[in-house]
Every structure is written in C-alpha cells, then in structure tokens.
Design a protein around this nucleic acid. Sequence first.
DNA 1: CATGAATGAGGATTCATTCAT
DNA 2: GATGAATGAATCCTCATTCAT
Lengths: 210, 210, 210, 210
Amino acid sequence: MEYNEKQLAILNSAEKLFSVMGFDGSSVRDIAQDAGVNVAMISYYFGSKEKLMEAVFEHKTYKMRLKVENLVADKTKTCTEKVYILLSDYIDKFLDQPQFHKIMLREQLSSKPGGVCDMVLELKKRNLQSIKKLIQDGQKNGEFKKNIDVPLMMATMVGTVSQVVIGGRFFKEVNGLTHLSDEEFTNYVRKKLNVYLKNLFKSIIVNEQV
Amino acid sequence: MEYNEKQLAILNSAEKLFSVMGFDGSSVRDIAQDAGVNVAMISYYFGSKEKLMEAVFEHKTYKMRLKVENLVADKTKTCTEKVYILLSDYIDKFLDQPQFHKIMLREQLSSKPGGVCDMVLELKKRNLQSIKKLIQDGQKNGEFKKNIDVPLMMATMVGTVSQVVIGGRFFKEVNGLTHLSDEEFTNYVRKKLNVYLKNLFKSIIVNEQV
Amino acid sequence: MEYNEKQLAILNSAEKLFSVMGFDGSSVRDIAQDAGVNVAMISYYFGSKEKLMEAVFEHKTYKMRLKVENLVADKTKTCTEKVYILLSDYIDKFLDQPQFHKIMLREQLSSKPGGVCDMVLELKKRNLQSIKKLIQDGQKNGEFKKNIDVPLMMATMVGTVSQVVIGGRFFKEVNGLTHLSDEEFTNYVRKKLNVYLKNLFKSIIVNEQV
Amino acid sequence: MEYNEKQLAILNSAEKLFSVMGFDGSSVRDIAQDAGVNVAMISYYFGSKEKLMEAVFEHKTYKMRLKVENLVADKTKTCTEKVYILLSDYIDKFLDQPQFHKIMLREQLSSKPGGVCDMVLELKKRNLQSIKKLIQDGQKNGEFKKNIDVPLMMATMVGTVSQVVIGGRFFKEVNGLTHLSDEEFTNYVRKKLNVYLKNLFKSIIVNEQV
DNA sequence: CATGAATGAGGATTCATTCAT
DNA sequence: GATGAATGAATCCTCATTCAT
C-alpha cells in the first residue's frame, strides 16, 4: 500500500495520539489537526476511525513482517547468536517505536475481537512460529535445552520489555535518573535491558553442559 | 473509606467496564445501568467519572496494600520461600482479578500524569521497596546472588504474567486449548505460570553454590 | 402513550416540518428549534429521528383508529348515509390536518419498507376491512350495486382529496380564487369536494333502480 | 436541450434515485456512482443538485408536452373516444414511468415554491387548458353533460391512478396477488384501472340521454 | 438524600461543492 | 474539457454533568 504525504501525516498523528490517549480517547478532530489536514480527509482516505486504526497497524507491521523470518533462516549464525539478536532487535524496536507498541498492548487489553485485535493475534502467531523453529533448530544441534515453553518465553521477553517501557517514569525515578534526557535514558535502558535479557535467556534456554 | 451498597455496585460495574472497554470507552450511562442505579448517582457520589476511576483504584488497592509488607516481615520463612510465595500470590491476584489489573496496565499506557497514573506509580514504588528489602535480606544471609536488579526482576514477573493474561486467546489457541472453559484454562495457566516463574527466578536470584 | 408538554411540542414541530420539508429535508436541529427545546431532547425522548417519525405517526393515528369502525357499526343510519358521512369525515380530516396526511403520502412514496411505511400499510388495511364491511352490508340490503371494487373506490376517494389538497395552489389559481385567505379557500374546497364526491359515489355505488 | 451520453446517464440515475429516495435522500455521490461518472461531473454539467432535479423534470416532460394538445385537436375521433384515450394514455404513462411520476407527486408535496414545484404547476395548467377544451367540445356537441368541474375531474383521474401506483404493495396484498411478478401485476393493474376509470368517467361526464 | 429531566459540548461521519491540474 | 483531491458545513447522536424537585 502506497501512501501520499497527507495520508502519511494522518497515519503518524494517529499513531501518536492512539498510543498516548488510546483509541477512544483520541478524536478524529485532534488527529486531523495534529496532521494539519481537514477532518473530512480521514473519512475520505481511510473510511472511518476504525479503519484508520487498522491502517496504522498494517502500515507499521508491514516492514517488520519478514525480519524475524529472515533471521531464523540465516545460516551464518548459531542459534544462540540468533536468540541474542532477536532480543536486541526486539528491544530496539520497542524503544525506538514505543508509540506503536503501546497501541498493540492497548489493543490486546481491549479484548473485543475483530479489527486490530485480530491483526495483533495473527502477528503474534506468525512470530511464534518463527521463534519456535529457531528454538527447535537449537535443540536439534544441542545448543539449547529440551523442554522450553516457547510461548511463555515470548511472554517473558515481550512482557519484560513492555514493563520497562510503559513504566518508564517508574524506572527513571527508582534508579535516580531523573536528570537524564529522554534520549539518554532510552540508551541507558537499552544497554540495561540487553545485558539483563541476554543473561536471563542464557539461563533459560542455553545448554551449558560442557 | 466506607461505601454503601449502591456505591459498591457502582465501583464493581465501573471496574468491570473500565477493564473491558477502557476508560473512554465506558460511559457513565453504561456503568449506572450495569450497577442498577441512576446516572446522576455517579456524579453525586463520586464527583466525576475521573474521580470514580480513582475511587475504583483506591478501593481495590486498599486491601492489597499491606500484603507484601507482611510477607517480607514474616520471620518464619526463608527468603527463597518468600520469593516463591510472592510469585504465587501475584499470579493468583492477576488471574483472579484480571479486570483490575487490566485497568492498571491501561493507565500506565496512557502516560498522562495525574490521577490514577500517579497512584499506580506510588503503588509500584511501595512494592519495590518491600521487595528490595526481601532481596537484600536474602543476599545478606547468602540465599541470593549479588548483583540483582530488582526493578528489572519485577518487570519480568509483572510483564510475564501480564502477557499471559492479556494474551489469553493467543495462549489458548497456540496451546490447542480452545476446548477448555474459562475456568479450566485459568487453572491451567495458573499451574503453568507457577512452575515456569519459579524456575525462572531460581535461575536469576538463588545462589546455588550449595 | 402519554406525552408531556415538551414531547408534544416536539411531535407538533416534527409533524409540521416533516410534512413541508420531508423526512430527510428536516433536520433534528430545525425541529428542536421550532419546538423550543434542546437538540438532545429528541434523542432523549424518542431515541432517534426515525423513532420520532414513528411516534408522530402513532400519535396522530391513535385517535382516528376507531372512528371508521364505529361508523360502520352504527345501527341508526342507512349504509348510504354512512358512505356520505365517511366521505365528509375524510374530507374534513384531510383538510384540517393536511400536514399529517402529507407525511403519509410521502412515506408511501418512499417505498422502503420498515418503520412508518409499514404502519401506513397497516392503517390502510384496517380501513379497507371496515369499508368492505360497510359496502357488503349495503349490498345485502339492496342499497348498493353489486360488483363494487372497494380498494379502487378507496383509491378514488383518497386520491381525489389528496390531489385537491396537495395541489392547493393549482386549484386556487385555476378557479380564480387567489384573493381568498387560506381559511376561506379551505372552506370553499370543503364544500366543493363534498358535493362532488357525494355525486360521484352515488353514481358508483348506489343502486338507483326504483 | 441536447445531452451527451454521460449527461443522459446522470439524468437517468437521478430520476431513479430521486423517485425512490427522494431529493434529500439521494446524494450526488450515489447518483454519480450509479451513472458511472465522476462526482464533480454533476456540478460541472448541471451546476448544482437543485438544477439537476430541474433538468430531470425538463427532460422527462419535454416529450410529453404536446401529446394531450394533439389528442384534443384530433378531428377523427369523438370526444368520448378522446376521453377514453386520455385515460388510457395517462394510466400507461404512470405505470410505465412510475419513477418520474413519483418525483412529481413528491415535489407537489414539498410546497416550497420555486424550481421544480413551479414547473409542475405550469405543466398541470397546460394540461388543464387542453382538457377543458376537450370537455367543452363534448358539451357543445351534446356528448357530455353540463356542469362538469374539470379540475376536480382531473383530480379524480390523477389521484386514483396515483393511489393505485404508490399503494402498489397494498393493492397486491389485499387482492391476494403477492405471487405475481412486478410485470404481471403492472399489467393486471393496467386492465383493472382502464375498466374502472372508463366506467367512472362514463358516469361522470357522458350524457346518456340516448 | 436521591433522581428524572434537561443541556451544551463534542463525537464521527457525510454532504454538495470547488479548485488545481 | 474533465476530474481526482480536498474542504467547510452540516448531519444525527451521545457524552458527562447539573439542577430543580
């Protein structure tokens, strides 16, 4: 799907407002104003507020679709390396596009099936399949332990990063980092999370016999 | 704060609707109807919709305030036992009161300070203090490893459980459990999470040098 | 159905505007303004614009329901007298409540079943049954001819009166009566229609043998 | 007025939609889509929605203008024959072009002078003059009674046919003809109306004093 | 104390029309 | 000449809140 300049402006504003105010909390008026377009343009281009939400989701997930698949298929890396890259990529994605991920979290909370909710579910299923394959590969060649519950493992990865990002203010204050700029803090969190999750997953999945 | 029967009915209905539909997605009309009271009662008793939300939060957290503090202060248990109880309690709390916890997650996502958002922050800080003390106790007596990042550890606990609960449909489908009733599935998840998190935290914090 | 003062004001304004501007041509804003109430009152009291239309119809037909039935059952009059009264009553009803009858005509034109359209159909069927009975009574006692097509006869009665009323300006101008006030003209039409239709129906139905 | 292909498509679609949905109920978008042209074409070709309506009217009445005049001037037929032909022609016109006649009825109901409303009035006046002449001819040669109110007579003709056509569903159901196709029913009505109106007008106007 | 009635503000969407191309 | 893009106005309806009773 190709979008023109105004459509992209709408998509960006919608992403921003939806993530901060929620779907119901954001009015099409606000979105239009933020995007610098007429209110009617939203209905004109996207049909409805609901459809706009779906377009935002589609637009943002479009590019990240194949990333995990490609990583798993890569034959130049060990499975352990791949897991570490997976973690690092996920942390980056979340930290660099917190708005979109907040929308995803919120949508999963709404629990009214249909529309975006289903799209999130599909995305998670796709990712699960890829990661499952990665784990199985590692188990076959002895890198990973047996008996790994992949869905729960994903929950830990996604959940830990989510908690850190949505509880940004909490982490800033309890770590005494209120003097840092947003960017500085983001980078601090990035390093912290990378080290922490790498160790955590090492404990969970990597076979340390030898 | 003492509430009469009608006020409690409002609080319960508000909790239910806020968790499912979100704050903006729930109208005071719907809440009043669900509670079987007049619409005006909400403004009359709680002042505003916003204040009602805060009252819901206050009401639900009131009882769970001292629980963690008491657990940490308990001298009849080892620190490791305490951590396991902490995990188990948290899983139970989340699974048995998913509505309220969904509200908390949603509020943290909104990131517009003031009101409930600040209350959530305060609650998390209190819990952090207690858990920090528990970890330090364990480190002093040699049960736990050094260098434990308690906030990140909390993020893993809260995040993992959250992910499983809000992704209920996802976990049901990928585990082939669509035939289970809600109650059966909840119990399945309860056991699964208990085992998984206990093992996970053992790896993270417990000092296994015999 | 009992209506309070404001509800009645809304019903009257709606009847007026619907008849002049049509359903789509009348906005709830205009109706509310004409009735001297807040716009939201319409939704509050009647649910929607569509429901308001149905309420207008129900309200206006409520009283005229039994009139024809009673006339037919009257045992003190001959069938011929009853037909003349029927004609006269119908002319009066149409001339004195032109707005409502215009709404009925318009609704029949819309031909999208459901709502008011069906209500009009039901009303016409009820009236047909009563009039059929009246004609049959007259045929049994020899007052009326055989072979009377009652639905077509109704079409002539309703259609003729309708044409005169909705073509008021036409009749005023071609009869050179532009100097008459509305009231004077209405009375002129009333007399004219009574004489004309009485003669017409005499020709159609009354058995003049003997 | 000469119209190109696209203009004719617009006129036809407009006629269809105006007759079914009414003027306000039809949007220029729908008309344009139905006609398979760009929305802007309507404003471009006809100036406005209002002007389009007038063009529809003008376009449809253009051909039927001289028909009645020619019939009255015809010297090969008796006046009685001419009246019968007039009736038959009118029934055919209405049954074969119900859409356009519904528009005319609706416009007369709107009673807001200007535009199409005036055009309808003019058309009716023209027809009245012709028919008046026809009646007077018949009266002069003794075929017709004296004291015929031509406007009322027209009201009966137009009104009866209108009622039957706009109350199509009513007549279908009360005559137990719901199994007929639209075409079959139309032909049934055509015959029924022809016989009925011929008899009716015979009673009204024809001098039967041998 | 409790509530039905009422309201102004704002919700999303659709409208007929215009303008740059 | 013809049109896709764009728009301000208006659509109906729902909102949280208030007020008189």
